[in-house]
Design a protein around this nucleic acid. Structure first.
Length: 372
RNA sequence: UCCUCAGUAGCUCAAUGGUAGAGCAUUCGGCUGUUAACCGAAGGGUUGUAGGUUCGAGUCCUACCUGAGGAG
């Protein structure tokens, strides 16, 4: 049975440490969840994700897995965990983000979203109920309700109408979920409201009636100034029940992780560490490192002197630069391992600081260091 | 020795006689619930050399230089 155990709360900031008990293992929070959209975290083996990075939970995507290979195929093959040989927890996004990212390929109606497949143009109608069914077929540990991730900027009226529809979808999805779930799954509704405090507050109030397993804050990182994203999390999180996990979807840069945690957030995910890794952008304790820069041509140092990851323990910047410029796929693997390790280590330090009651000091130090 | 073809950005190549471009490479930047091993910007040229024709030549003419192929 899914359960969130709260272990410690920072009295000054409200930062929390806890454990998500899932059917596929415990997940210590605050947690950063690597994104594995198409039943793989791009560039990296499930084996390394476990033995080297010790990630406890990753994301999958309903829209993408529905299109290819198909949720029924995955169900027949024993579910997503078995399909991708990932025995730990999986959270699946509903396809709500694709409403935003594939905006030229979809049409939103009251009943749901009509997608034109980005692969072959086939039309597929996603409803709150159908996306729940797909996620059940996948065997997701934490399912997300279908929502509309609204682009920024949006007018108050457009945001109000969109948020109201997302709310109706959330209720429909949750009704469906309660009728069909077995005790193993969890389901999170998603707070929307664009960048409007009143809409965010209203959305939360309505979603609280669902008495959900956890709550997500969505519609951020859609082009707005970063301060705004944090502000939305800051006004939303305190309104959510303290005994349920809070998940901000799609954030953020390394410096932002402690800030979200300081606002009472327990879970985050982002493609930045994995995508930027493949594009040669490495996150280090000293800031960003763009590996293709000429200054690294003969640099024998590791990417980050203080990083314990496999990549930093074994390879030089010069070697990684060479692999990147040569287009070798090994670069993607090594870079992704490093960037994810960086994110996971940051979250690990945050959690430790909270548990020992030193989060305010940790936060001050991090803000003083402020690197990209 | 002669014939043919070819010499344009670092490389491979475009450009009806009318403002010399592209891809790759180089340098730099971007990426936030993945349509992304992706996208963008910048630098880079006495068009082999020297003459000629023309209002105007990378383009046409002559000679030479270099390379490839062929003939002898």
């Amino acid at each position: 049975m899914f359960r969130f155990e709260l272990q410690a709360v920072c009295p000054e900031t409200g930062a929390r440490a806890g454990i998500l008990h899932t059917a596929h293992g415990d997940v210590e929070t605050p947690v950063f969840m690597p994104v594995g959209t198409q039943a793989t975290v791009k560039g990296i083996l499930a084996r390394d994700l476990i033995s080297d990075l010790d990630a406890k939970i990753i994301l999958g995507n309903t829209y993408h897995l529905f299109l290819r290979p198909g949720h029924e195929t995955i169900r027949k093959l024993g579910g997503l965990h078995r399909f991708m040989s990932w025995p730990r927890a999986i959270l699946t996004d509903s396809g709500g983000f694709q409403v935003f990212s594939l905006d030229t390929l979809r049409k939103v109606t009251e009943e749901g979203v009509l997608f034109r497949s980005h692969l072959n143009g086939d039309q597929h109608f996603f409803t709150p109920e159908s996306t729940m069914d797909v996620q059940l077929a996948l065997g997701s540990d934490i399912m997300m309700v279908l929502d509309e991730c609204l682009a920024y900027p949006a007018s108050h009226e457009a945001a109000r109408a969109s948020t109201a529809r997302t709310l109706r979808w959330a209720r429909a999805a949750y009704d469906h979920y309660r009728r069909h779930r077995d005790a193993e799954h969890a389901c999170f509704p998603i707070v929307q409201g664009s960048m409007f405090a009143d809409l965010r507050r209203h959305c939360v109030e309505e979603l609280l009636e669902l008495d959900a397993d956890g709550y997500a804050i969505g519609g951020l990182s859609v082009g707005e100034p970063r301060a705004l994203s944090l502000e939305m999390a800051e006004i939303t999180a305190p309104l959510l029940p303290s005994d349920r996990p809070r998940y901000v979807m799609g954030v953020g840069m390394p410096d932002e992780l402690p800030e979200y945690v300081a606002r009472g957030i327990d879970m985050m995910d982002c493609v930045l560490p994995s995508r930027n890794a493949r594009n040669g952008y490495l996150f280090t304790s000293q800031g960003r490192l763009i590996i293709k820069q000429a200054q690294y041509k003969e640099d024998a140092r590791p990417v980050d002197e203080s990083c314990p990851c496999y990549t930093c323990r074994n390879f030089s910047r010069a070697y990684l630069r060479h692999l990147f410029l040569a287009g070798e796929m090994t670069f993607s693997t090594l870079a992704t391992m490093h960037n994810l390790r960086r994110y996971l280590d940051i979250m690990g330090r945050i959690r430790e600081a909270i548990l020992v009651g030193e989060y305010p000091a940790f936060l001050r130090a991090q803000r003083a260091a402020m690197v990209t």
